[in-house]
């Protein structure tokens, strides 16, 4: 497979090339912020970002060689984690703020107008400040995001045929390659062997917080949908429904 043919350096270069462009909301959010217009802006933005995320995933070496079943399920499981890690990366140099897009930055107070959001907001800020303390590098960020995608789903399909088993072994192989790439990226920072192992552990430990945050965010969005606080349509609705369905 492609994953084995590429060196860690080449794989990182391909993963970096796959990075989505800056995405703008392109609509003025009315001030003062209200629950309805903040949620509307955030969901509009998420809908746009999701399309770019599918493009991104397709450019991760080896991803399109997985079965379509696996591609769909990986994306359905990880989409909010990927959005949240991107948000943390954009916000890493802006303490106390979340940079949803270049034209939508919210402080904690501004975010608190949405019921139930402040807890998630604080957790996002805390994880972002941890990345800031660790001085997360762009290459490390890109590897972590690819890892989230490839590690998002351990579920087996009900009818495991030859193609599915082959896809599962390709997936594990790809995950190994991305892990090697992350180790390589860390090794460039000039740390001692011991410090590199510690850094790898610190970065990977943050992924469990991101998964937890994504679950919280998913419940919150589901709740907003049920209360008809925000109309959801198209891709975002489909992705939310898929997640809720997998969860149940």
């Amino acid at each position: 497979g492609v994953s084995i043919a590429l060196s860690p350096e080449e794989l990182i270069a391909r993963i970096m090339d796959a990075e989505p462009p800056e995405i703008f909301l392109m609509k003025d959010v009315k001030k003062p912020f209200t629950e309805a217009n903040v949620m509307m802006s955030l969901t509009n933005l998420a809908d746009k970002e999701l399309v770019h995320m599918i493009s991104w995933a397709k450019k991760i070496p080896g991803f399109v060689e997985l079965s379509l079943f696996d591609q769909v399920h990986l994306l359905e499981c990880c989409w909010l984690e990927v959005l949240m890690l991107g948000l943390m990366w954009r916000s890493v140099n802006h303490p106390g703020k979340l940079i949803f897009s270049p034209d939508l930055c919210l402080s904690r107070d501004e975010g608190s107008c949405v019921q139930g959001f402040v807890e998630i907001f604080d957790m996002l800020l805390a994880a972002t400040s941890r990345f800031r303390e660790l001085k997360l590098q762009r290459e490390e960020y890109a590897c972590l995001k690819a890892m989230i995608l490839l590690n998002s789903n351990m579920c087996l399909s009900s009818s495991e045929g030859g193609e599915e088993l082959q896809s599962r072994s390709k997936l594990l192989c790809l995950l190994d390659s991305v892990t090697d790439a992350l180790v390589w990226a860390i090794s460039k920072t000039g740390l001692s062997f011991q410090q590199r192992s510690t850094r790898l552990a610190h970065l990977l430990m943050l992924l469990s917080h991101i998964r937890h945050l994504s679950n919280k965010g998913m419940d919150h969005l589901h709740c907003m949908k049920m209360k008809k606080m925000v109309p959801l349509y198209d891709l975002l609705l489909e992705m939310l429904d898929a997640h809720i369905m997998h969860g149940s």
């Binding site: 770019h52 493009s55 397709k58 399109v64 379509l68 079943f69 769909v72 359905e76 198209d234 898929a242």
Partner: peptide, 24 residues
């Protein structure tokens, strides 16, 4: 793959060889 799966937007964007960004 079930019929329901085949109707997913995600499914369509993944299968099509054009860029999802262009399709959307």
């Amino acid at each position: 793959t079930s019929l329901k799966e085949k109707h997913k937007i995600l499914h369509r964007l993944l299968q099509n060889s054009s860029s999802p960004v262009d399709l959307a």
